[in-house]
Simulated assay, not measured.
Amino acid sequence: MSKLLLHIFLIIALGYAQKNYPADTVLVSPHANIFEKTAILPIAAWQRVSYNSELLACQFYPSCSNYGALAVREYGPIIGTAITSDRIVRCNPFALNYHYEMHGEFHYPDYRLVDSVQVSRPRYTSNKSPLLAAGLSTIIPGTGRMYAGRFLDGLMGLWMVLLPGTAAYGSLKDGQSMKGNFFAGITLIFWLGEIYGAYRTAKYYQGPK
């Protein structure tokens, strides 16, 4: 019954989506497949809340929700969602300080931190190994970012993996398989995001030496 209701919800939501918010342009695009649209649907729903509240305004440009929609459209629902989770981890109270350290650009007139999905080349030469960073976060989430010089981002990443991971373990232990699998999926997404984020941090997010 729950699966049927979910399918009905998705069909109705996709059918009535309009181009009122940025993610909607991808949601109604004939070039996006059903899997991409399903992954973008929560983003479109979130924009209906965040775009109507100054308290939820994102510090990045593009915003995390737009970044996520672009990542899913460019790389597909699985990799795109993992890339989005990396941005969510980096959208924390320490982002501005790290942005200053690498002499990052600002978007005017709102002075948001410019951070594109695709980065063509590093701003500064890095002495950190992206592969080593990714390998470290494969073993222990967050440690790759720490190695790359962003200790606080690493702590945030570790927390974002441990939180749903603990919920998944507890749910599965109590025999709640649906809930456990849901949290396990979130854990996997953030873990993949940590691997990608560690690689990207070591390669692109370095300041002048």
Score class of each variant (00 low, 15 high):
residue 153 D to G: 02
residue 4 L to R: 10
residue 23 A to T: 09
residue 103 H to F: 12
residue 204 Y to T: 13
residue 1 M to E: 15
residue 180 G to D: 08
residue 135 G to A: 12
residue 82 A to C: 08
residue 111 Y to C: 07
residue 15 G to R: 10
residue 49 V to K: 00
residue 198 A to Y: 13
residue 30 P to S: 14
residue 120 S to F: 09
residue 188 L to T: 11
residue 22 P to C: 03
residue 90 R to T: 07
residue 70 L to K: 10
residue 74 E to A: 14
residue 98 Y to A: 10
residue 41 L to Y: 04
residue 126 S to N: 08
residue 32 A to P: 14
residue 179 K to H: 14
residue 190 F to G: 01
residue 126 S to L: 07
residue 162 L to P: 06
residue 82 A to F: 05
residue 113 L to D: 09
residue 107 H to P: 00
residue 63 S to W: 01
residue 135 G to S: 11
residue 106 F to V: 13
residue 89 V to D: 03
residue 205 Y to R: 13
residue 205 Y to D: 08
residue 6 L to F: 12
residue 119 V to I: 12
residue 34 I to L: 13
residue 151 F to E: 06
residue 39 A to L: 15
residue 1 M to W: 08
residue 4 L to C: 10
residue 4 L to P: 00
residue 179 K to I: 14
residue 49 V to A: 00
residue 201 T to M: 03
residue 94 F to Q: 07
residue 77 P to A: 09
residue 20 N to Q: 08
residue 112 R to L: 02
residue 49 V to T: 05
residue 124 Y to D: 14
residue 82 A to N: 03
residue 136 L to D: 12
residue 207 G to P: 04
residue 84 T to G: 01
residue 5 L to G: 04
residue 182 F to V: 12
residue 152 L to A: 12
residue 29 S to E: 10
residue 196 Y to S: 03
residue 69 A to L: 02
residue 204 Y to D: 04
residue 118 Q to W: 08
residue 15 G to Q: 14
residue 109 P to R: 15
residue 31 H to N: 15
residue 105 E to G: 01
residue 74 E to M: 11
residue 206 Q to K: 11
residue 87 R to C: 00
residue 183 F to D: 03
residue 17 A to C: 04
residue 37 K to D: 01
residue 51 Y to F: 05
residue 45 A to F: 00
residue 77 P to Q: 13
residue 37 K to A: 01
residue 77 P to K: 09
residue 20 N to I: 01
residue 83 I to P: 00
residue 98 Y to D: 03
